[in-house]
Amino acid sequence: MRAVSFVTSFDGPTKAIAVAMLLLLAVGGAYYHQFLSPMYLMQQLQNGAFLGIVAAGAMMVILLGHIDLSVPWTITASATLATALVGTSPEALVSERGLVAGLGAGLLIGLINGLGVAYLRIPSMIWTLVTNNIILGVCVFYSGFYALRSQPSPVMSALGAGQLFGIPCAVLVWFAVSAAIVFLLRRSRTGRYIYAVGTHEPAAYLSGIDTRKVIVFAFVVAGLCSAIAGMLLTGYAGQSYQRMGDPYLLPGIAAVVLGGSSLFGGRGSYSGTVAGVLLITLISSMLSIMQAPEAAKQICYGVVIILMVGLYSRAAPAN
């Protein structure tokens, strides 16, 4: 396998987003000087870390030509379970069973998603919609419409809200997750299989790949990523709450698609996904600072997606 240099891995969409972000920062910075301050930019990375980890998981599934709509309640359920086990008085070490259980919940949900899509052959859009509804049902039945009073474990608090050498720990976790995903996609056999299955599953199957295991694996990674984001969010907010995962589903998918991945599968680079996350985070934060009303944010968000994605697909050769 040919080694791919870091520089050439920046493809068209990544460059387009980089240009768009520099433009935004330059124009925005001319009016509001705080846009260019290191503190502001670091805060953006902290905000982007949660979305970035969700998008990393979403990308694994999208590369297969599937989609994971269970993100909102995977985040909420893993966080609710974790804080419920920690209870109201977190202790060192003992409370970390909450963290482990939360991550385990993410793994389990990912496994169920993967089994339904790979073995029962139910379209992922429907199957993950159903699992999302079922998890919602279990959570509501278990905890009522309001989350129980509970707290994150010490490690969750440290990772979600703490800093190391001036860098938010959540960003470091995002780096770690990114490194693992990049290694997986570029250096491992499974990564190659993921692209192969996403390109044309029957061909991958006939070449001897157990495509069903690949699909299950990708969904498990996606579930785990959602759970990690849930743990960090809980640590950041100091609690778990109902609907805490809702704002991450569509922006997560949008970030992956903005980064140039095709929803049909088989095409996409991780650098594009990171760029997409940064662009979405930057746009929403700039609009907040300019005190744009919610309506303007929504419209802006929609227009950016249509323009950028339209640009890519019209530039790409027709297949």
Binding site: I306, V309, S313
Partner: peptide
């Protein structure tokens, strides 16, 4: 725009 329906209608 040749955009996949999911993402196109999400944006609109």
């Amino acid at each position: 725009g040749k955009i996949q329906p999911i993402i196109a209608t999400l944006a609109t």
